[in-house]
Design a protein around this nucleic acid. Structure first.
Length: 484
DNA sequence: ATGTTC
């Protein structure tokens, strides 16, 4: 039975896949991955954005949305769109303001009972070691402009040269921690000024560092291969490219607005500002975006290394006892040139993932050897009071979603609604009763990010799992949180 | 998300 939301008709394809037929300028159908129950939370604005994206020149297969879809700048968050490199466009709105906002998960050899007595001290020390909040700066000694250039052009390799991490960290980072297309000379002076003292800082909003425990294993075989076991202490880091990436997005939203006119691209929404992938403007954006992506991977790398050092110091452990190791680092906001099947042919496309995670299948040539048999680890954070998930990419994802999955819970309540709902409540105390210790710069941030403002990430992940896009591997429960 | 409206 078709369903209509605000005049938009959705045809049910399978249990959790809904299609919007092409109309008024749409070049491809829209496809939304969502359960019938979750459709009640959809208001139509985000579906309109799925339809708008379907109008972009060169878009192939479908304009896709994951179950954590919600309204965003131009493109919906939770959106995936691929455009042909030969005659398609690239759009900053398809990546978002926090370029390469993403997540990494580091494993330890510890059981949660090993750290329980020192958890509070550990959180305190992590909070002191890692600058948090809007405008946070100065995690490491001041960078010279030439260092920032190396960060943005070589990514994680720069951090390794500085003694921040191991070769395994690079192996276990999407794109091996560096998009080679990055070009520092394409980045504005203003972005460079904002970025130069922000490396190794967490930022604000939904960004966090959490100490977590592996609570449940769903797939024993993949979990074993990933090195996950029940009761294990792990560290999850969620942050992005800070003011550096924000400024680059801001610069190019304006510049590509001009390019849209120059190339006479007809768009249903100005926020979809774009340029042909192979134009000078499109290429400048891509090279700048790649610079911000490399900054973000390096940022997470440095924060992880700072965290590792605090673990060693606070717990008085040797590296051989801590056995700290990066499982994987994924991007949630990025555009990549990849090869995918389009109309029965392998084609080079620009995959925009905005609030979506790459989820490559076993055997994909871009994965490191250690994940060739299992598929890529897909990291999906939930909220600070409940849980997060580790999943694995599948062949179905390659065929249906350009190798992509959901990226998180998705908001239920706006920031202002959250502040009202939190009035008079002792959120720190409520979390403590659940055994979760939080240290944050501002109480407002805790309120804006409290568990109830997010959907249950388990229901989001289940849609992807039931659709065969990813396989659930493990559930993680927070023990301690640091935030901006 | 963001020197949270150059």
């Amino acid at each position: 039975m078709p369903l209509t939301i605000k005049g938009i008709t959705l045809q049910q394809i399978t249990e959790c896949v809904w299609e919007i037929a092409p109309e008024k300028g749409m070049r491809v159908p829209g496809r939304v991955y969502i359960s019938p129950e979750m459709l009640s939370g959809i208001n139509g604005e985000e579906l309109k954005q799925v339809m708008n994206v379907a109008c972009l020149p060169g878009i192939v297969n479908y304009s896709l949305a994951m179950p954590d879809i919600h309204w965003g700048y131009g493109f919906p968050i939770g959106g995936v769109a691929a455009t042909r490199v030969s005659d398609g466009v690239i759009s900053p709105g398809g990546v978002g303001y926090d370029i390469n906002c993403g997540v990494r998960l580091a494993l330890t050899g510890l059981n949660y009972t090993d750290i329980q007595p020192k958890l509070e001290q550990l959180i305190k020390n992590l909070y002191n070691a890692i600058p948090t909040g809007v405008g946070a700066r100065g995690a490491i000694s001041k960078l010279q402009l030439n260092d920032l250039k190396k960060v943005s052009e070589t990514g994680v390799s720069w951090a390794l040269e500085q003694g921040f991490g191991t070769q395994n960290d690079k192996e276990c980072t999407e794109e091996f921690g560096c998009m080679k297309e990055a070009d520092f000379s394409a980045v504005s002076q203003k972005a460079k000024e904002r970025g130069i003292d922000q490396l190794g800082t967490l930022g604000s909003g939904n960004h966090f560092l959490e100490i977590e425990v592996v609570r449940e294993i769903y797939d024993e075989e993949i979990a074993r291969s990933y090195g996950l076991f029940k009761g294990q202490v792990v560290v999850q880091i969620h942050t992005g490219s800070r003011g550096f990436g924000y400024q680059i997005c801001d610069d190019f939203v304006k510049q590509l607005g001009e390019a849209t006119k120059k190339y006479k691209i007809d768009l249903p929404d100005r926020q979809l500002a774009c340029a042909p992938v192979d134009s000078e403007e499109g290429e400048l954006y891509f090279r700048s975006m790649a610079s911000a992506a490399n900054f973000a991977w390096t940022n997470r790398q440095i924060i992880m290394e700072l965290a590792k050092r605090e673990f060693l110091k606070t717990l008085h452990l040797q590296q051989s006892d801590l056995r700290f190791r990066l499982l994987y680092d994924v991007s949630h906001n990025i555009a990549k040139i990849e090869k995918h099947l389009v109309d029965g042919k392998i084609e080079s496309v620009c995959v925009h993932r905005k609030g979506a995670t790459r989820a490559f299948a076993p055997g994909h040539p871009d994965l490191p050897n250690m994940y060739q048999l299992t598929g890529q680890p897909v990291l999906i954070p939930g909220d600070m009071g409940r849980y997060s998930f580790v999943c694995a990419g599948t062949q179905s994802a390659m065929e249906a979603t350009f190798g992509s999955s959901c990226h998180g819970a998705g908001r239920l309540m706006s920031r202002s609604m959250a502040l009202t709902a939190a009035k008079g409540r002792n959120l720190i105390g409520e979390l403590r009763e659940k055994g979760i210790i939080i240290q944050a710069k501002g109480n407002d941030t805790i309120a804006e990010e409290m568990p109830g403002v997010y959907k249950d990430v388990a229901s989001v992940v289940d849609v992807m799992h039931r659709s065969g896009i990813i396989r659930k591997v493990a559930k993680l429960r927070p023990l301690g949180v640091i935030k901006g």
